[in-house]
Structures are given as C-alpha cells and as structure tokens.
Design a protein around this nucleic acid. Structure first.
Lengths: 337, 337
DNA sequence: CTCCAAAATGTAAACGGTTACATTGATGGC
DNA sequence: GCCATCAATGTAACCGTTTACATTTTGGAG
C-alpha cells in the first residue's frame, strides 16, 4: 500500500496524491476529495522513512535526561510530551545516564533520527557536548544556563533566596542548608540563593551547610548530623523535597517536633509533600511547564534556525507555606541559640 | 556526506562500504580496515531514514502509557530505556493519555515509525486496540492480562492476597480496603486478591471496601470515612502507596496512632514510603524489572514473530514490613471488633 | 598452464515518498 | 480568434541505503 497504489486507484498521478495529503499546492477541490476518499478507503498510511528521506526531516525530537529522580522525571516528560503532540512532533526519549560518556553515546545514536535535541545535563561539562553534536542541530539545554546555547531553567536562585528570606522573616537566623550534589547546576544555584539571603541577614556560617545528593537518605543523615550541633539550628532548608522528607523522617525518629523545635523546608513541591506530617513548606516549581516551554523552544529553534541571539528562559517559582514552618518556634530563648 | 562519498574516497563501491559497515557479507580484512578508516576520518554517519526505507525497519519501539502517577511512570521508562539501549533500540514515548481516543490517535501517529509497541492500557478495552493496529506489528501489553495478546504484568492478585493474609496473621480481622479506579486492571486484581484472602479468614463484609482512584487525596478521604465507622477497622490496606500515604496523613491529623490503633499498608513500594512516619508496610514491586522484561518481550516478538503461543509473563512481588503495621494492636478487646 | 569454484567486489534496481519542471487546459484581454 | 497567464496535473529525478545479481579476482586441482 503505497502512494502509487492510491494514485492508480484514484486515477491521478502520485504528485497529485502527495499534494492532496500535504495540502501544500493547489488542487481542485473535487480531485482532492476524491483522492482523500480513496486514500481512506485503502487505509493508506504514508511511509515515514521515505518521507523523512525525501524532506530530510523526521518530526522527532530527542530528549536526553540524566538519571533523575522520580517525580521530576515524569513531570518533565509529561510536559514535553503534551507540547510535542500539539506541535506535531514525536519524542525519542533516553533517560538514566549516570556519566557523560554514556550520554554522548546516546546522543550519537540519535544522530539523523531527530530534528532537534532537548538535553538535561545539570552536571556535565557542556563544552564536550557541542563538539559531539552536529552544530546545525538545534539544541536546547534543560536546567543549565549557558551563554552559548539556547537554554531554559528553573529560577533556582530566586526560589532559594525567597525561601531563606521567608525563614529569616519567621525569626530564624540559624538556618541550616542541605546541599545538592556538587557538580549539579540546580544545586549550585540553590546554594547561591541561600548564601546570598544569609549574607543579607548577616549570617556567614559555612558550618550550617551540609552535604547531600538529592536523595532521602542524605537528607536523613544531614538532619541527624545537624541535631548534634551545639547550638542547634532552628530551621533546615533542604535543596530539594526528597531530602527534606528524609530530614523530617530523621527528626520525627529523634523525637524533635517540627516546626516547634525545628522548621523544615524543601524545594520542588513534589506531590507527597502535602501528605507527610507535618506537611512540607517548599518552593513550588511548575515542572510540567518547564518541559512544555523547553519543547517549544526546540521547535522554535527548528522552525527558525540560527537567530543570532540565544533563546534563554527562566521558569519562575513560588513559595508554598505549609505546616513544617508555619508555627513560630517558641520556648527556646533567644532564637539563634 | 553519504555512503557514496565514502566509497569514492576509499576507492571502492558503495556496496562494499555498506557491507563493511554492516558486517553482513565477506569482505577482505584489508579492504574492511581501509573503509572503516575512511569512514571514521570523514565522520560518516549513515542516514537513518534511507536505511529504514531500505530494510523496512526503524529499530524503534513505541511506548504508550496512560496518564500514570509519578514514581511508576519514571521507573517503567527507566527499565524500558535501559533494556532498549542494550538491545540496540530507540524508544518513542508517549505518556499522559486520559482517554482511549487520545491513545488511539497516538498509536496511529506511530504507525510506520516503530517496529513494535509497548502499550499500557489498564483501563481501556483492549479489543478496540487490535483492530486499530496493523496486526503484523508486535504488541505487548503492560499490566493487562489478555489471552489474545502478549502481555506482562505484576502479580497484583498474589501481592494483595499475601498482604491481606499478613495483616490477618497479626490478628486483624476488620481489614478495610481502599480500592483503585474501577476500570483499572491492576486495581481489580488487587481487589480480587484482598477479597479472596478475606474470604479465607471468613470475613465477607463489602462495607470494608472504600472507593479510591490511586491518588493521595482519595486515600485521605477514605481514611476519614473509615474513622467514622461504628466498629472501626483495625487495619487499612490501600491498593497503592499514594493512597496509603494519604490515609496516614488523615490518621495523623485525626490523632489516631499508627500502628497502635490502626495498621496501614500499601502497594508499590514507592521510595517515599520509607520516609513517612511511620514508615509504610507495602507490597514491593520491581517496576524497573517490569519495564525491562516488557521491552525484552517486544524485541523477542520482533525478532521471532508469530510464534503460535502467546508470550505472557508475571512479575512477582514481595512483602516489605515496616512500622505502619509492625506492632500488634493492643488494648482493643476481641480483635474482630 | 588451464580451468573452475569460491571469494570479493561492482552495478543498478529497489525502497516510497517529494518536488522541480514540463505539460495541459481554462480564462480573459485585445 | 490568438496569445499570455495561470491553475491543475503529470513526469521523472532525487533523497541515501541495501542487496540481488553480475562480474572480476583468487587459489588450488589437475
């Protein structure tokens, strides 16, 4: 069942059938109808490979993500997927890459299969990417700001700054921060936002910063470690919700009441944050929107290539105040102790 | 940069180049080396579309999922992705379909683009699928058992049965069940396992079953409703972890102690279950493995088509006992009340 | 050295679309 | 009635592979 069959059956040439199906050239209405009828009757479906070969375009976008934690992953894909469907593109997905080499291999394998790329490489040196990817292939970076590439990311700095300022406004000055993985761009920006806000309230104690890697486990450990500190921090701000949940769990186990003794806040606004006890104050991020806009950027880059200026977007965040910080810490003389 | 350029540069014919690159016909070692060198030097990458057109195969598998909750989604994709990479396939993903129509549209759009299909349609009438999909296209159903299709699913029945039996072994007889969405195949099987186990211990009270739709919200509501019941159930078994977490949250808010007054159990073993308080007893499912084996099934179906017998697999589950059930309920005279 | 089978390589026809260019037919101005 | 113009359609080249078949080369037997 090829376009030739349809043409023969409809008594027209293949060119006419092609024109009818693509609506890209004038065809008499009557002819058009007839061809469409025949095509439908024959259940004709154009051969994608042949079409791609001819027009040198696959209508497919490659989406490459690192080994990223659950909620975030699915939400991004969802956003990308919906936007792609709307724009008439398919998405070729590859997630779960732990190292740069693996990622480059995947990018290589996608060569020629995709019209554009959406790459999330928060902790990969971007430099090595471009030289590996054909430079004419549109590329949008996810959650990694870069001056030489189109990119979109969350307002990590702003969100972390706002949360820290909010905690300070509750009277906290000893606000601990559980960091994300060192090389991760999101993690770094969040840390920067926290530090800046701390500086603003006149606290410069690097001892308040604990290592973490975005998993619940490290949130747990960090919280336990913090409880040992002599002047115990009155607030803990984790660089993401997973760690905040881990911290809550450790605090609960240690019998420390939240938020009365220690306030806790996270970043991301994952679903479950609403259902842990106490419910988690966090920085809300519309991940779905991140994915959607990222895809739109790629499509734009494909449709109108090589605009001199870089396309760069930032998705804004907002604070979500819940019970893990709500009540002012009491009973503890001189808040900073 | 085409195969012709490589051939010209290497002083051989295109056929030889093709044979070298595909290693599917005898070529003199010396020639082979030379051609490979030239190809590498020229950074030649075969045109995928042309190749697909010629061999009528895309090395791509379509993965179609419904609008499924976070953790599950990402884990499945991860498993599928890893297995696909190993098998040399790409995956064309489309998630987030709320209704059957949308899904059929997507399947249609994938026509010709994929060599096989992995479809999760727990609440779609399967019948309508097959007639829409070219029958020669390998299709594997995810989490939906079917006699007429290759399929793989979780041992929902067994897992639910085992969990219910475990709760009973702790002395509970009044075990409530929060159901999943009615048309969902997983939900139905879990309910069946629960009922069967309840029957075995001689309890047949349909009043113990509450509606739910796999979201935390409905878990919350169900738990609240259950607390109103005159003889209050001593255990709540939710058809998935999200609802169990919702229930825990509602119980905690109502000041009901878990597991002392009410035991709670879930199904899925999502990460966060370890970090809620109390940590959640649940049925562990290796979703990653589900995805992996599902993909292997499709690949197998592609490589060796039309074996008369259906390929059907079931991924087993296991109980994970944590604190939400651990302590025997005390103080309550005559367990069955 | 000749001859033949087997191995290595080349030639060209698919694969199924799109589209530049050619052709045909209709329309209207003169 | 003629010709320019333009809309509608047809013809065939092209996109970059793979591969059946043809051809050349090789090596060993006789």
């Amino acid at each position: 069942m090829t376009i030739h069959d349809v043409a023969a059956r409809a008594g027209v040439s293949v060119a006419t059938v092609s024109r009818v199906l693509n609506r890209n050239a004038p065809v008499r209405e009557e002819t058009s109808q007839h061809v469409q009828d025949v095509a439908r009757r024959l259940r004709y479906v154009p051969n994608v490979a042949a079409r791609s070969l001819s027009i040198r375009r696959s209508n497919t976008i490659g989406v490459v993500l690192p080994n990223v934690h659950g909620e975030f992953f699915s939400e991004v894909i969802r956003g990308v997927d919906v936007a792609a469907r709307k724009a008439g593109f398919h998405i070729l997905v590859s997630g779960s890459h732990s190292d740069a080499g693996e990622m480059l291999a995947v990018l290589d394998a996608m060569r020629g299969r995709v019209d554009g790329l959406l790459v999330m490489a928060p902790d990969v040196a971007i430099g090595s990417l471009r030289e590996q990817i054909p430079s004419e292939l549109p590329l949008v970076l996810l959650n990694a700001t870069s001056v030489d590439h189109d990119a979109i990311s969350i307002d990590n700095y702003g969100g972390a700054h706002a949360m820290t300022a909010y905690l300070a406004s509750l009277g906290h000055t000893s606000i601990a921060f559980i960091k994300g993985p060192d090389p991760n761009a999101d993690a770094r920006e969040r840390l920067r936002g926290y530090r800046q806000a701390m500086k603003k309230i006149g606290v410069r104690d690097r001892g308040l910063e604990c290592p973490g890697d975005f998993t619940e486990e490290t949130g747990c450990e960090a919280a336990k470690a913090l409880l040992q500190r002599a002047p115990r921090p009155t607030a803990i701000f984790a660089a993401n919700d997973a760690m905040a949940v881990g911290a809550l769990s450790a605090l609960s186990e240690a019998g420390v009441s939240v938020p009365a003794e220690v306030a806790v806040a996270g970043f991301d606004d994952i679903r479950v944050g609403r259902y842990v006890t106490p419910s988690l104050t966090t920085v809300h991020v519309d991940i779905d929107e991140l994915g959607r806009r990222a895809l739109e950027l790629v499509v734009d880059a494909i449709d109108r290539p090589a605009q001199g200026d870089r396309r760069t977007e930032i998705v804004s965040t907002s604070l979500v105040i819940r019970n893990s910080t709500k009540i002012r810490p009491r009973g503890r003389k001189g808040g900073s102790q």
